[in-house]
């Protein structure tokens, strides 16, 4: 089957370009060759280099690059801060993803209701935090959380030194992240809701299903591919989040808000320990891969009949 269509394709090509050279430099060949070369240089090679680097004592400042086997991994895995960062990352990811899904789906359902007016404006307002640069809004939130002048304590009448309090620093960063990101899920769910088939809803209405049943039995299952997409892309991006931590807490107070990506940033570009940083990044890579595969597996098992 493949071979047939392939010859069919090159056949039409011959008619059109004629010359031998034109057959080699087709759009397909040129773009694929460019892609392979480009990816090899900027993606594949760096990945291999990271794996190799994780086996070396590697410091670019003094120019060391010495084979040490699995020593870096042993060092990292026995480091308390590494495990603490993993724990923080797990909390950070879980809470942020759950809120992103719940808020995103809830608001998207409300916004898709026929009763709501001025949808474009509302959507734009909800999406505004998502399309503003993280560095910029992180600074604003440092100020929002300020115990003396900040808006949050004043409006809510609280007395919490959010970013300096060991118990509240991580929640503060998570609150800011949820605020920044829920718009992404709103927009994606709105897009998915728009493309749901009308006929299913009409059939449900004829069968006398109420709004609650329609939501649980029809809308939610039909949205499953989108939910999976949002959960996976969110997980991948939250595992890599560091900018808000760098700006809002610098990992502190103490090491209370270290996440795995902030730890790698710190290890690599503030301490210049490239070897151990590479070992950590390899571990992060493995975790991301395993989590992604697990998500696909879990959703596939639950969801055979729909897809």
């Amino acid at each position: 089957m493949k071979a047939v269509t392939k010859t069919g394709h090159t056949g039409s090509k011959t008619i059109q370009t004629g010359k031998g050279l034109g057959r080699v430099f087709t759009m397909r060949n040129v773009s694929l060759a460019a892609l392979v070369i480009y990816f090899s240089v900027f993606m594949i090679y760096p990945i291999f280099k990271a794996f190799a680097g994780s086996m070396h004592d590697w410091n670019p400042l003094i120019g060391t690059y010495k084979w040490v086997g699995f020593d870096n991994f042993r060092l990292v895995l026995s480091d308390g801060l590494f495990w603490k960062s993993i724990g923080n990352t797990a909390v950070f990811c879980l809470v942020s993803v759950v809120f992103r899904i719940v808020l995103g789906l809830g608001l998207a359902l409300l916004l898709s209701s026929k009763l709501v007016k001025a949808k474009d404006t509302l959507r734009g307002l909800f999406y505004m935090p998502t399309i503003t640069p993280m560095v910029a809004v992180a600074f604003v939130w440092v100020w929002m959380f300020d115990p003396q002048f900040g808006m949050i304590d004043r409006v809510l009448g609280l007395d919490i030194n959010w970013l300096k309090d060991p118990n509240w620093a991580l929640p503060a960063v998570i609150i800011m992240t949820i605020w920044k990101d829920f718009g992404y899920a709103v927009v994606l769910y709105l897009g998915a809701l728009m493309s749901l088939p009308r006929s299913v809803y009409e059939a449900a209405a004829i069968d006398g299903a109420n709004a609650w049943q329609t939501f649980w039995k029809i809308t939610l299952p039909l949205l499953k591919p989108m939910t999976l997409f949002i959960v996976i892309t969110s997980l991948i991006s939250y595992l890599q989040a560091y900018v808000q931590i760098m700006i809002m807490t610098g990992g502190g107070p103490g090491t209370q808000t270290y996440t795995i990506s902030y730890l790698i940033f710190d290890e690599a570009f503030q301490k210049y320990k490239f070897g151990t940083a590479s070992a950590m990044s390899v571990l992060l890579f493995l975790m991301t891969g395993i989590l992604t595969i697990l998500m696909f597996k879990a959703s596939g098992d639950m969801n055979m009949e729909e897809s």
């Binding site: 397909r28 760096p46 680097g53 890599q240 790698i264 690599a268 590479s278 990044s281 890579f285 991301t288």
Partner: peptide, 28 residues
């Protein structure tokens, strides 16, 4: 376009979406 290895190459490209910046940034 149809060609041999299309799905393989696309799969590799797609899977780089889950490579963290932390992996590639030091070598880059």
């Amino acid at each position: 376009m149809r060609f041999r290895g299309r799905n393989l190459i696309f799969g590799i490209v797609l899977s780089t979406m889950m490579v963290p910046w932390a992996v590639t940034i030091i070598p880059q």
